[in-house]
């Protein structure tokens, strides 16, 4: 973390940040890291590295796809709640409440074990072209992460849509914009802009939710660490390394979102 913010801030702020007690703390932290490197067992690392990279890749695509699909679902969910007719708003609100009111682990297991045990009873599902996919774990993992993100983000987007100033929409209508154009050009971009800081936090939460898929036999980076622990009976080393990997991904995510926010021109009237 410290290294990240070093790179991000210019020189004078770095000097202001680097107070004497911080130098002491950094030296202490380095000593702990060095002690961990030399006193703990890391000889398994080269052997498991290819598997770990595969797991890391799986974690990342799971995160990216579930965030992308989840956001695509969240926009209509939020819009239905903020401006839709009752018969759309009520189901959308019910969906968000259910998703936010139950643990993700339970949703994941309901989909994987529950649906997974129901599907084989229907011959037409077993004969369909989807069956080879439905027998694997990843569609269930991706689906439940997507639905979870959509549920939380639907709520965020509802607030964001409702928060766009009325005058903006009235101006769009006064220009004679068709309703969809007004949505695409005015309403949606401003709502997304409002939601962006929250989206950053929610995306970090989503990253922190991805290791749950290890419980349904998907081999992500967390599952690789578990396998190392089971194979070699080393407890702390894989977990500590895993924590470090997640912290680095979180740092990168926050940095990316900050860049994204900086790209959008801030002009409040």
């Amino acid at each position: 973390m410290a290294v990240m913010s070093d790179a991000a801030v210019p020189r004078p702020r770095l000097q202001a940040w680097l107070k004497p007690h911080r130098i002491g703390l950094i030296v202490l932290a380095l000593a702990i890291v060095l002690a961990a490197v030399f006193l703990m067992r890391w000889d398994w690392l080269p052997k498991y590295l290819p598997l770990a990279l595969q797991g890391l890749w799986r974690t990342i695509w799971l995160l990216v796809l579930s965030v992308a699909f989840g956001l695509a679902l969240a926009i209509p969910l939020g819009f239905a709640q903020a401006a839709g007719p009752v018969w759309l708003a009520v189901p959308a609100r019910a969906f968000c409440t259910v998703i936010r009111g139950t643990p993700l682990l339970l949703q994941l297991w309901l989909l994987y074990y529950g649906l997974g045990s129901l599907f084989p009873q229907f011959p037409w599902i077993r004969e369909s072209f989807l069956w080879p996919y439905l027998r694997q774990a990843w569609p269930y993992g991706l689906l439940s992460l997507t639905l979870s993100y959509a549920g939380y983000e639907g709520e965020v987007m509802r607030g964001a849509f409702a928060g766009v100033a009325r005058g903006q929409l009235e101006a769009a209508r006064a220009y004679g914009m068709p309703r969809f154009t007004a949505f695409r050009r005015i309403w949606l971009p401003q709502a997304l802009h409002r939601a962006l800081p929250t989206l950053a936090g929610e995306t970090v939460l989503q990253l922190k939710a991805t290791p749950l898929v290890a419980t349904i036999t998907m081999v992500d980076i967390y599952a690789v660490a578990s396998r190392v622990r089971q194979d070699l009976f080393v407890t702390y080393e894989p977990l500590l390394l895993l924590a470090l990997v997640y912290m680095i991904i979180t740092g990168i995510l926050i940095y990316l979102f900050r860049m994204l926010e900086a790209r959008i021109p801030q002009r409040l009237g």
């Binding site: 973390m1 970090v204 922190k208 290791p211 967390y222 997640y246």
Partner: peptide, 23 residues
């Protein structure tokens, strides 16, 4: 004090960046 503040910052940052399952 400054040391307590920095240590607490590390605590909150680390806990909020690492998955609950790993913690």
């Amino acid at each position: 004090g400054p040391v307590a503040r920095d240590l607490l910052e590390v605590y909150t940052t680390v806990v909020r960046a690492v998955p609950e399952l790993v913690l």
